[in-house]
Write a protein that binds this DNA or RNA. Sequence first.
DNA 1: GCGCAAACTTGCGTGCACGCACTTTTATTG
DNA 2: CAATAAAAGTGCGTGCACGCAAGTTTGCGC
Lengths: 234, 234
Amino acid sequence: MTTPPPGLRERKKRATREALREAALRLAVEHGPDRVRVEDIAEAAGVSPRTYNNYFASREQAIVAAVTADRETRIAAAVAARPAGTRLADAVSEAVIEQYTNPGERERQALLLIATGTALRDAFLDAAAGIEAPLTVVVAERLTDAGVQTARVLAASVAAAVRIALEGWLRSSAGAPGVSGADGAAEAAGAGGPAESLGAGGLVVPSGSLPDLLRAAMAPLAPAFDAAEGRGGP
Amino acid sequence: MTTPPPGLRERKKRATREALREAALRLAVEHGPDRVRVEDIAEAAGVSPRTYNNYFASREQAIVAAVTADRETRIAAAVAARPAGTRLADAVSEAVIEQYTNPGERERQALLLIATGTALRDAFLDAAAGIEAPLTVVVAERLTDAGVQTARVLAASVAAAVRIALEGWLRSSAGAPGVSGADGAAEAAGAGGPAESLGAGGLVVPSGSLPDLLRAAMAPLAPAFDAAEGRGGP
DNA sequence: GCGCAAACTTGCGTGCACGCACTTTTATTG
DNA sequence: CAATAAAAGTGCGTGCACGCAAGTTTGCGC
């Protein structure tokens, strides 16, 4: 029903994607992230440069994908796997933390690489937004009463919280610009006054462990989940 | 204290930015969004093409900025203007709706233009994320007990809710791809099954008015704001 | 007024994203 | 198994984002 035979066509696609991912990561580690051209990655994967962009929309996405892989769908699956009676807020929170808790050695090396430059960092944070769509599906399943729109908002809020936690986690040696991790649009406003003072002052958890940061970031959303589930107080 | 004299340098910058914005919008309306090159916009604003990118990171940003302008900072100001006793959730919600409720004729024309293509739509939604930083500041002011991290998450959630509302609002004639409006990262997951069925079924508010959509999108977050404020039940 | 330092602009060059048209490969149907 | 449809890969051309290293303007202290 799900995948009778995966189909030869599909296998080739996945193989190509994985080849590109790994080639991108390997070359980036070997020569430094800025000294790798798309042409090199494509060649290392045995494919045309043009084909590269059929798989990844930006150069950084390929590198980041080597770490991200299909984390999003696994999070959704992990949420769906929790028993039906559990508090949705807990189910989501634990599923997310569980999937972001990896002692993988290769991933740690990749993350070190990602933390070096702004471009890769942004791509990594953008990739984290990928959990929104799968999360919306599973959340909507449990919130049949509240409507799809509520599920959308809650899933997006979780994605935002994850992004914030990751931002805080990556903020170690490099000076992060400000509060928001969004693209240049914020700068266009020209306000640029008090935001820095917030970003600069490290009042909150200088650099705690990632699970703790994730838990702390998602905690404020729990009441919203409870209300959507119909749980009044406790 | 805020702006003793704005300074001649700053005035020129703002003038250049505005010239670029308006030139971009005018040319896009005249010749269609895809038939305007950066070179044309720069020339119309009397500036070098290279300088254009010193003000806007992408071609679409300039066009969108003509509508967005400094809406973000006005939202923050509107929140700060509410009396201190009001429920924070209401203050934020009303401030946002207030700033997105404009019967401006020129803006309506621009939004019609924006809705035509995918690129402009995405840029517009991205620009909406610009409210996050200013919102974080004002929310953090009122939530001194809960900590800055909570303010960050709540502000980001509001920004996400606004994005979702705008997505739903723009979904009229053009077929939107799915649930998430994020960039191509979601597609990389390969899940792509149930998400479409959610996006396709227009169960929730076929195309209500924007204020209603915004209100509905932000409503699920109200319990989170209440809890952060220390308000137990009501 | 004078000159200095910082900020803004600009030309140039590089790599990249992506539309279009075309070839090659895979899947399906009679 | 052949014919045909669908989909992925590829070459090419265009416009764009952005780093770098000048050139130019603005602000400020003397």
